[in-house]
Design a protein around this nucleic acid. Sequence first.
DNA 1: GCCAAAACTGCAACTATATTGCAATTCACA
DNA 2: TGTGAATTGCAATATAGTTGCAGTTTTGGC
Lengths: 141, 141
Amino acid sequence: MTNSNLTTKAEEILKAAKFNCTKAQVLLLKELLISDKPLSREELIQHMGQKCPDTVTVYRILERFCERGLVHKVYLQSRAWKYELGHNCTTKQCHPHFTCSDCGETFCLTGSSLPLIKDLKKGFVIHRQQVNIDGLCPACS
Amino acid sequence: MTNSNLTTKAEEILKAAKFNCTKAQVLLLKELLISDKPLSREELIQHMGQKCPDTVTVYRILERFCERGLVHKVYLQSRAWKYELGHNCTTKQCHPHFTCSDCGETFCLTGSSLPLIKDLKKGFVIHRQQVNIDGLCPACS
DNA sequence: GCCAAAACTGCAACTATATTGCAATTCACA
DNA sequence: TGTGAATTGCAATATAGTTGCAGTTTTGGC
């Protein structure tokens, strides 16, 4: 996809979700669109280069995106939160993530999925199930 | 279990895992033994009261316990890491955790389990699979 | 295009969480 | 009971995320 197509796509997504198409939001969404794995605030900022908005702004955009389900947080072994688009997930289940305990790299396992948990005690309502696998990646095993 | 039985149990576990039975390690392990859910450093310190070791010591003990598999870290929605004994888990899979998005409480779902993920691409080696569910607990739903 | 309201951004200060270095203490075991 | 190794506490530091507020940009109605 060309960069201008990507920009158009980001703008469409923002409009559809009733967000303003500000420079910062478009830029950040583009980074998420081209990434094949969840990114931390730190990584996003590095990818965005000179034009990058303020750290606080990055956090605030991510928070807004999360609130409306455009993006979600992934809770991994790393200390920092990571963020990814929700498009590879169903309402109730996020695709599994694999994190290499050697190199620290995270992989999205978009091809695999697990059933939703059953037999929960009465009263528990599931919003989202996340699966988080720890191990060695092909490069480190 | 009486307090002295608990102490004995903690000491046995420490010895079996080749740890010294220091006051701090016994105290901390006792807290983990009586807890039915993963605890953060903060929560551990609160539970230990006056006799509580230094924050840094708590982190260091937890780290040592994790290294030898006595304890493991759970990666949840909360910003702080949580720790629990490994005894309710199999080698490859930790029991699922449920975190209420309303009250923030975490529940161990020791009765339920999911199959291990299959069909991973060649070269991936699984060490541990964690399942993390987000939703509403009986009190909040 | 121009204007007002709403949404968004940047800066500075701050809070929470975890880590490091090093000297002092405690522990296991001969 | 003495000794080396393991453990601990304190102070300083690093890292991650948040808050308040003033200023800027964006949108939507004219």
